[in-house]
């Protein structure tokens, strides 16, 4: 009785030792042959059961069969473990250097002025303004006369104009002509912004013969200076990402009355650096011109100035982009310079 128990236990231990030493599926097969094969140790033990007394046979048989089951399960589980290990070893052979660059084209790059244009448009769309557009090749009427700038008015000196050889055509000097076009098309009430390229005969580090403006126009009943202040302050805080102090100076534009210029606190130094390059130590940045629409302009747009009034503004998008992204040379913006464009990174 005690004999076969001892034998079973000895074989169990022998198998455990052998299994622990196995380090591949080949050795598992050898183990299987050694214990479970036709001439295997356990097979032989089962075969020798006949020699036992009849009353001992059932118990001994059960014990040896139980061991057989254990060995089979152990081999099976070791086998699947080795399969996983071998698969992983194969994966290691396929390993890549994850620090190598990705394959394919990198993301492109946005242009700071165009990006600002889209950002500004989004802000004003949120305030109920719709986008309007007009031609860059304009005529004298829309660019000047309809905006209360008669021929030979000294105000024309404010903007040096590019003329086309084809008589009567010019490159718009501001986006303001779109004001009149929008009023004629849509009437009042009206809320539009008009972004686009404009042209003036001027070229130095702070002036480009081509630059970008965004014009805004609101026409309604009972519009006050308070309304444009509110709109533009929302805009300034959004575009620069934080609340900025604003102030207004009286100014003159032929198409607005009263007219103002808006300054905001310096985005670089907030007025704390008297040698600031951006604000020249004044603490303030001139950001745009604005005012209440001149009744003559409303009339040009066939809107009754007694019933309606409104406000308008015009801002240089290039300047805002330069302030926002800390750029200092306007001309580099329009050269398609790959090093410059790609340095700006992505959105």
């Amino acid at each position: 009785m005690s004999d076969h128990r001892q034998d079973v236990q000895q074989m169990r231990e022998a198998f455990a030792v052998a299994l622990a030493e196995a380090d591949g599926s080949d050795q598992l097969e050898a183990l299987r042959v050694r214990f479970l094969g036709k001439k295997g140790e356990l097979t032989s033990a089962l075969k020798s059961l006949g020699r036992l007394p009849a009353e001992e046979r059932p118990e001994a048989g059960a014990a040896w069969n139980a061991l057989r089951g254990e060995i089979e399960r152990a081999l099976e589980s070791a086998k699947s473990r080795f399969r996983l290990l071998e698969a992983e070893a194969e994966e290691h052979r396929q390993s890549v250097d994850v620090t190598q660059p990705g394959c394919g084209r990198p993301y492109g790059a946005f242009h700071p002025v165009v990006q600002v244009m889209h950002d500004v448009v989004d802000i004003f769309v949120g305030l109920g303004f719709s986008v309007a557009s007009g031609p860059e090749i304009e005529d004298d009427f829309h660019n000047f006369e309809a905006l209360n700038i008669p021929p030979h008015h000294p105000a024309r000196d404010m903007q040096d104009t590019f003329y086309l050889e084809r008589k009567g055509l010019l490159l718009r000097t501001h986006t303001s002509p779109v004001q009149v076009r929008s009023m004629l098309r849509h009437g009042a009430p009206l809320r539009v912004v008009c972004p686009g390229k404009v042209y003036r005969r001027d070229s130095d580090p702070t002036h480009s013969p081509m630059f970008h403006q965004l014009e805004g126009l609101l026409v309604d009943e009972d519009v006050s200076v308070a309304d444009i202040k509110g709109c533009l302050e929302v805009f300034v805080n959004e575009i620069f990402g934080r609340p900025l102090k604003a102030r207004y100076r009286s100014s003159f534009f032929p198409f607005t009355e009263p007219s103002m210029e808006m300054d905001v606190e310096c985005v670089a130094c907030s007025g704390r650096d008297s040698s600031c390059r951006i604000c020249k130590g004044t603490g303030w940045l001139e950001i745009m011109g604005l005012g209440m629409v001149h009744p003559n302009v409303l009339r040009s747009g066939r809107i009754d100035p007694e019933r309606y009034n409104g406000f308008a503004w015009g801002m240089g998008l290039d300047r805002i982009a330069m302030l926002k992204y800390g750029l200092n040379d306007l001309r580099v913006l329009f050269q398609g310079d790959a090093a410059f464009l790609s340095s700006g990174g992505v959105l």
Partner: peptide, 25 residues
């Protein structure tokens, strides 16, 4: 002058419609 104490800032009311960025844009 146009300081806030003289004339406050406010948002214009009664928009006729939502702002539309438009097909081209």
């Amino acid at each position: 002058g146009y300081d806030d104490e003289i004339i406050p800032s406010r948002l214009p009311g009664r928009p006729k419609d939502r702002g539309d960025i438009g097909a081209t844009f």
